[in-house]
């Protein structure tokens, strides 16, 4: 069972969920390049200018570990990274668990992604125009702060470490992606976990994903927000367990 974290934070996102599967499965946790404890030197802006670069990493990683017919659990943008990896190497996963997936964040005609194009551009403009100030404001939280050791000490092992420049690039790739057309080609069984009141991936998006996939189950969770793996680990664990045991 391979756990992939989404935009923001790192494999710590799974700290309350992954241990529950250690008896039944061999669990694999990793940080995407540019996040958490990954080698920031390995970040190549060209390779990671689309989600395919991240999907290639997943395929490479799973092949190196000899994963076959496994379970891929992807949160947020990693749900789509898992879709791309499964299409590229169908033998890797027989089941996919997508937590808060979104194939496209921007509204498009009848499709309701949750954000208008103007909002996403506001986000990206904000990151660009204000990025120095933003980076520095974010830095104490995201990076730890060398100037404030009493804060930095606590945050040295921060759960959300990332390089502000990479976080900005990752935001661009994530929020401009459109993987709606990739859903139909997935042969694995898929579980879609949809939170209530998720502003990042609203219910309409979860339903779209469910409809577009050939073999999909949709579970509407009581949990709110975008991170049920943190806010409602028990509910998340139960949903995954019933899916993989079915």
């Amino acid at each position: 069972m391979v756990f992939a974290h989404g935009f923001g934070c790192d494999q710590n996102m799974w700290r309350y969920v992954a241990p529950a599967f250690e008896d039944e499965f061999q669990t694999v946790l990793f940080d995407h390049v540019g996040a958490g404890g990954s080698d920031l030197e390995a970040y190549d802006p060209v390779r990671y200018a689309s989600l395919d670069g991240y999907a290639d990493d997943v395929v490479e990683l799973c092949r190196a570990l000899g994963v076959r017919g496994g379970v891929f659990v992807g949160h947020s943008v990693s749900a789509m990274i898992g879709i791309l990896a499964a299409k590229q190497a169908p033998e890797l996963f027989s089941e996919l668990v997508l937590v808060g997936p979104s194939p496209r964040y921007i509204d498009d005609g009848d499709y309701v992604g949750g954000f208008s194009e103007a909002q996403i551009h506001e986000l990206l403009d904000f990151l660009d125009s204000n990025h120095m100030g933003w980076s520095q404001a974010m830095a104490p939280v995201i990076m730890g702060n060398a100037d404030r050791p009493e804060l930095g000490e606590e945050l040295t092992n921060s759960f959300c470490r990332t390089d502000p420049e990479i976080a900005k690039a990752f935001a661009r790739v994530t929020f401009l992606s459109d993987n709606r057309a990739d859903l139909a080609g997935v042969s694995a069984r898929v579980l879609v976990l949809q939170c209530s009141e998720d502003v990042i991936a609203p219910r309409s998006v979860g339903e779209f994903v469910h409809r577009s996939l050939p073999r999909s189950e949709l579970v509407l969770m009581a949990a709110t927000g975008h991170c049920p793996n943190l806010s409602a680990p028990e509910e998340t664990i139960a949903a995954i367990q019933s899916f993989v045991r079915a």
Binding site: G8, C9, C160, H226, L230
Partner: peptide, 18 residues
């Protein structure tokens, strides 16, 4: 604002929880 909303959901809410 929109950036704050997104970063709150993806970064700060998880951080607070952890």
């Amino acid at each position: 604002n929109i950036a704050g909303k997104i970063f709150y959901e993806t970064h700060f809410a998880p951080l607070l929880r952890m």
